[in-house]
Design a protein around this nucleic acid. Structure first.
Lengths: 245, 245
DNA sequence: AAGTGGTCTAGACCACAAA
DNA sequence: TTGTGGTCTAGACCACTTC
């Protein structure tokens, strides 16, 4: 079976392997067919299969044992929320086993603070739009999010309604900012003050996990800021750690 | 110049490229030589160079632009402490710009709690050794760490002194547990209680970042537990996030 | 010996960007 | 047009594991 070169054979092969992992195999076997066999199945060369498997291995989804075979990593699949994965909050909440909902808290335009400008590689005072949203999990406040986007990056006819109802990723994609290539998050622990406690329906002083993100374009230029506050007990972030070079 | 196959040409090439990034090039250029050129320089094929570059790209150290070249990622180098990198605390503290020191708080043997046993895939009550250490940055308490290792995994003649003075990684490597392949951390925000505040010399109620780690062998079997508590303001964890498959 | 992943190569061709 | 990275292949050989 030849696969269509929708994007590239490697990524298509990777997609099919992911499918294979999720559907039939993994559940009982935990072991994938041999590289040669996969190559036959998809009509590509072994090198292509190895490239696809290599990507999956570096993300921790599988690991290969010399002389034995390729195995699904049972640990990775137990992480419901991967901190190194940047996904829409709705998906994140759903993956964690809850029903997700969005609540718009506010949207306003204003100048960038010096701190914000620094993170965005912009100048203080530059106009920007800031939107605050509350995401609920099974009706319970789960994630408080505040996104800030410099107006200079948005087209004049930008659709503000989208900002209110959809995820920031979608909004950016549909407003010419192109794809968000990656983000860098810094982690901080915070305690809920009175206002926050009220909003999130938790006791004042509750410790919260905060992520301060900067989103970057493929060119490494900063696109937007995103502050995320996570209520405890709902989203359990996990991350695989290894020795780097 | 042919390189020696110390481990593998790809990893040796990667090492040399990392060196290249750190030393000469990056600083002024930010751009690496072309793949063809690197291949010549190191006496390997372009495919080998691409494999090495691919690894560095997936870790975020470089990114490649079609038709333009390979560039050092300026963002990644600004992250002093990568959450996805598992390194010794001493290095972590030093990389963050401080002088590191270790202080042994206690070492005792006892049975595993049900929760610990579950994480380790072991049975409650199994004997284990637990060690508590405090790492200081410029003399100031920075990381409180508690490691738990099942006794069953350790050789009878295990060198307990090492546990006290060195990092857990070193201890494990030198006691037959082999290399720690990877770890999975879960993130939690905590508030310092009175005892903790006293120990860490911070106000009671200060929010702390906590990492609950499980270390795994290459075979995916759990090796040890590691609880880490980070005092605010010293170690600033960053993490690159992207869209996964 | 058979099957598996690990390593590496040489080379072809494509796609993008700049001059 | 030139130089760059992107994709893909076929095939050789090695190293580990099991039988």
């Amino acid at each position: 079976m030849k696969i269509k070169t929708a994007s590239s054979r490697v990524s298509e092969t990777r997609r099919l392997i992911v499918h294979m992992i999720r559907e039939q195999w993994a559940k009982e076997e935990g072991r994938l067919p041999s590289e040669e066999r996969i190559a036959e199945m998809f009509g590509v060369s072994r090198s292509t299969v190895r490239a696809a498997l290599g990507e999956l291995e570096s993300s921790g989804f599988i690991h290969r044992k010399h002389g034995l075979g390729t195995f699904v990593n049972p640990i990775a699949s137990q992480i419901h929320a991967r901190l190194d994965a940047w996904i829409e909050f709705k998906k994140l909440i759903e993956q964690s086993g809850f029903e997700a909902d969005i609540q718009l808290l506010g949207l306003h335009k204003g100048p960038l603070s010096p701190d914000e400008a620094k993170k965005l590689g912009s100048s203080p005072g530059e106009p920007a739009v800031t939107v605050r949203k509350l995401f609920t999990a099974d009706g319970q406040p789960a994630i408080l999010c505040q996104d800030t986007i410099p107006l200079a990056l948005l087209p004049p006819d930008c659709n503000a309604a989208l900002l209110e109802t959809s995820d920031t990723f979608h909004f950016l994609a549909k407003n010419g900012l192109g794809p968000v290539s990656y983000g860098v998050a810094h982690l901080i622990a915070r305690c809920a003050d009175a206002a926050l406690a009220d909003l999130l329906r938790i006791p004042a002083g509750t410790p919260l996990l905060a992520l301060e993100n900067v989103g970057y374009a493929p060119s490494d230029s900063p696109l937007f800021l995103s502050s995320e506050l996570y209520c405890p007990g709902l989203i359990d972030f996990g991350i695989m750690r290894r020795h780097l070079y």
